[in-house]
């Protein structure tokens, strides 16, 4: 080190440059003054899950069917679901309780990835502070439910993709349903034809054994398999 330390002066020139440029270069003063501006959120931001509903009514338009896939997939197990029941204690496809403990949730988005009904999505709301650190941080079903319009507002691209997917699914279901109806109609026609033929046969010959009669009855009982909500994972 001689009388004048070159390295130190170089460093001081850098800090002086930063000092001066902070007055006129945006890049040198990146501070966002928080309560007035909120620029940290973009449309890809995720924070805490919420539930999407379609249309006006929260309960009617709810996409969630309480299948509990998200509850199983949640790594920190912060989701708690109870299925709703009607007056006759018969379970209906809707959650009665849907709680997310936001103090436990780690915003990993795995629940979103498993959801087959496009129901649970990530919110970008980040001002979640609360005076009550137990009940206040437990977000229940009614607070979680947010409209599809809100979803479009915060994640426009993703929401549009979701809507397209749902539309495609509905269309697919429609064609499937049509195909099924067609099939059922054909089957019914065939059956009618068979029944007519049988009646003709019966009329022709009433001396058939009861064993064949029983076999025909069981055939008629066979019913179409129930529509299974569990679809394949993405």
């Amino acid at each position: 080190m001689s009388l004048i330390a070159k390295g130190i002066l170089q460093g001081m020139a850098v800090t002086a440059k930063n000092f001066i440029q902070s007055y006129y270069k945006k890049e040198r003063l990146p501070t966002v003054e928080y309560p007035e501006e909120k620029s940290t959120v973009n449309q890809f931001t995720r924070n805490i899950p919420f539930l999407v509903y379609d249309g006006e009514d929260e309960i009617e338009g709810m996409r969630c069917t309480a299948c509990k896939l998200c509850e199983k997939a949640c790594p920190p197990q912060c989701i708690y679901i109870i299925k709703d029941t009607d007056e006759n204690d018969k379970p209906i496809k809707r959650p009665k309780v849907f709680d997310i403990d936001s103090s436990v949730c780690m915003s990993c988005q795995l629940c979103v990835e498993v959801c087959p009904f496009e129901s649970i999505r990530m919110d970008s709301e980040f001002e979640l502070s609360n005076e009550n650190r137990f009940e206040g941080l437990l977000i229940n079903r009614d607070e979680l439910l947010k409209s599809n319009e809100y979803y479009h507002e915060i994640h426009p691209i993703e929401a549009q993709e979701t809507d397209d997917r749902i539309a495609a699914k509905i269309a697919e279901a429609e064609t499937k349903k049509k195909a099924r109806e067609e099939k059922a109609r054909l089957a019914a026609e065939a059956k009618q034809a068979a029944a007519a033929m049988k009646a003709a046969e019966e009329a022709a010959a009433e001396t058939e054994t009861s064993a064949t009669e029983q076999a025909q009855q069981s055939e008629a009982k066979a019913e179409a398999p129930e529509d299974n909500p569990e679809t394949k994972n993405t």
């Binding site: 930063n18 000092f19 902070s22 040198r28 003063l29 990146p30 501070t31």
Partner: peptide, 10 residues
């Protein structure tokens, strides 16, 4: 203030 500006803060 001076230190803040040197450090690109407000």
């Amino acid at each position: 203030k001076g230190l803040a500006r040197i450090q690109n803060r407000l």
